[in-house]
Design a binder for these strands. Structure first.
Lengths: 131, 131
DNA sequence: TTCCATAGTTCGTATGTTACGAAGTACTGA
DNA sequence: TCAGTACTTCGTAACATACGAACTATGGAA
């Protein structure tokens, strides 16, 4: 037993910086993770992202990515038993930096799909499709 | 005389990535420079930024910062005699990633002033006039 | 022309940051 | 107690960045 696990660090809303947010989301893996978190209703566990857009992410790397998102103030993480539940802090950030997260997520989707953007939440892709 | 100067690299609009933009603007010096460029009407030369928000920037570092902005697609640079004139590529980027630049600049100004934001262009922060 | 000043670039290197395997912690259930 | 799951931490190699020294490129005297 060399050293235990350090406690989870969550900056308070006024300590969140634009630079911190931009840096955290300037990584393709992190922005993809964040986009999925933002699109999902409830909490999401880390291991859901061991595969991100056809790319396999090592566990230790994934852990660091979540730490980066957490310490930039983008997500809130809570240990529940053996797993870690993550939710975005979109609403708080929206109050401090209006439009920022929406614009970034929209730009990310424009780039991913190659088509013009749409800021609305996607409820559930292809569930109501005819046939 | 080891090697001449390489030509200026400007990505075409479809090669500009969100990650690239976010990374370029995740540096406090670069986002400050970019905010000033975006607020000013005409072209602005590099050496206007040897001082950025009470901080003195070495020439070589400043040159690298402008290269980063240029290669992320954020600014267009042109040599005119001995100086380099820079303009933002806001309008192009606005077409590809609507609202992105405005939201970042707004967030930057919220953070700088400590007050709620305003997306409109600032009239003219009269600093060092091109002497 | 030659010389000098100005404006910016490149290079070398020291310092920082990031990725990921190996080994560890923490919890749960058998 | 043991094993399995889900993550975290550590060590280190690879990559990125900052900045001084030396350079290029241009323009304007003399």
């Amino acid at each position: 037993m060399i050293q235990g696990m350090r406690p989870l660090v969550h900056p308070s809303i006024e300590d969140i910086t634009v630079e911190g947010i931009l840096h955290a989301l300037s990584d393709p893996v992190r922005v993809a993770i964040y986009a999925e978190l933002a699109a999902s209703a409830g909490a999401t566990i880390c291991s859901n992202f061991l595969q991100v857009s056809d790319r396999s992410i090592p566990k230790s790397t994934l852990s660091q990515h979540f730490r980066a998102l957490r310490e930039a103030g983008l997500v809130r993480s809570e240990r529940h038993g053996v797993e870690m539940r993550n939710v975005t802090r979109c609403k708080e950030i929206e109050r401090r930096f209006p439009g920022l997260i929406a614009a970034i997520l929209n730009a990310h989707s424009v780039q991913a799909t190659g088509r013009a953007g749409d800021t609305r939440r996607k409820p559930a892709p292809r569930k109501t499709k005819a046939a």
